[in-house]
């Protein structure tokens, strides 16, 4: 991945804006930001970010590649779409945030211990296995996200809740050992492989078609 990163640095020679335009989903919109700040002001999680969308767009224009790709901001987006609705320039801000997060992972620069990033990884792994989200296993893996001891502590704390759910038939403990699956698991995996193949072929080819 860092090899990939070096290649990109080499290719764009500090023109990070162009790099974003070419490689980030909806990245060609970044230059149209007029810095009014309505997005950052509208974001319900705004106070908890390191950089809001307005600042991130300015940082992209200023060529602050490492800071942008290592930023926590894009990971904090909950897709509430407040910013998209309010942006006077009609930028697809939510999509750009997810695009930036995705690109940061691709470049190997995304923050390692960012909780939402970790959650995304766990969610994806969970889903990929059987084609359905196994909520019990996803929940338990979240308990153990920060290590074994932490996991046991959380599990004990949450035990009454879990037992209550079992009692009221809201949760089946047997799900832990299997649970629901898609009918054609192999086909599902083949589908994902194909998608990944297409995506990496596209990246291999360089800038996304349609991007300037």
């Amino acid at each position: 991945m860092s090899e990939n990163n070096n290649e990109m640095i080499e290719r764009y020679r500090g023109n990070f804006l162009r790099e974003v335009e070419d490689n980030v989903e909806e990245g060609e919109w970044v230059k149209m930001c007029m810095q009014c700040g309505v997005c950052s002001g509208s974001c319900p999680l705004g106070p908890h970010w390191d950089f809001g969308p307005q600042t991130l767009f300015m940082m992209i224009r200023a060529g602050k590649r490492d800071e942008v790709l290592a930023a926590e901001g894009p990971w904090m987006c909950t897709s509430c779409y407040n910013c998209i609705v309010r942006c006077p320039r009609e930028l697809p801000i939510t999509h750009i945030m997810h695009g930036l997060a995705h690109y940061a992972v691709r470049m190997g620069l995304a923050p390692k211990n960012q909780p939402t990033r970790k959650f995304s990884d766990l969610f994806w792994k969970n889903l990929k296995a059987d084609g359905r989200v196994n909520e019990l296993r996803l929940g338990i893996s979240l308990y153990f996200m920060h290590g074994f001891v932490d996991g046991i502590k959380t599990a004990l704390k949450k035990a009454p809740l879990g037992l209550g759910m079992v009692r009221t038939k809201r949760m089946n403990p047997m799900e832990f050992f299997g649970g629901h699956k898609v009918r054609d698991r192999k086909g599902f995996h083949r589908m994902l492989e194909k998608a990944e193949e297409i995506e990496s072929a596209r990246i291999e080819k360089g800038p996304r078609p349609g991007a300037e």
């Binding site: 230059k31 149209m32 224009r61 320039r89």
Partner: peptide, 14 residues
């Protein structure tokens, strides 16, 4: 006209 400038790649820095 401002938008046109932005879409042509002129960078606006405050």
């Amino acid at each position: 006209f401002y938008r046109s400038g932005q879409s042509r790649g002129i960078v606006f820095t405050k």
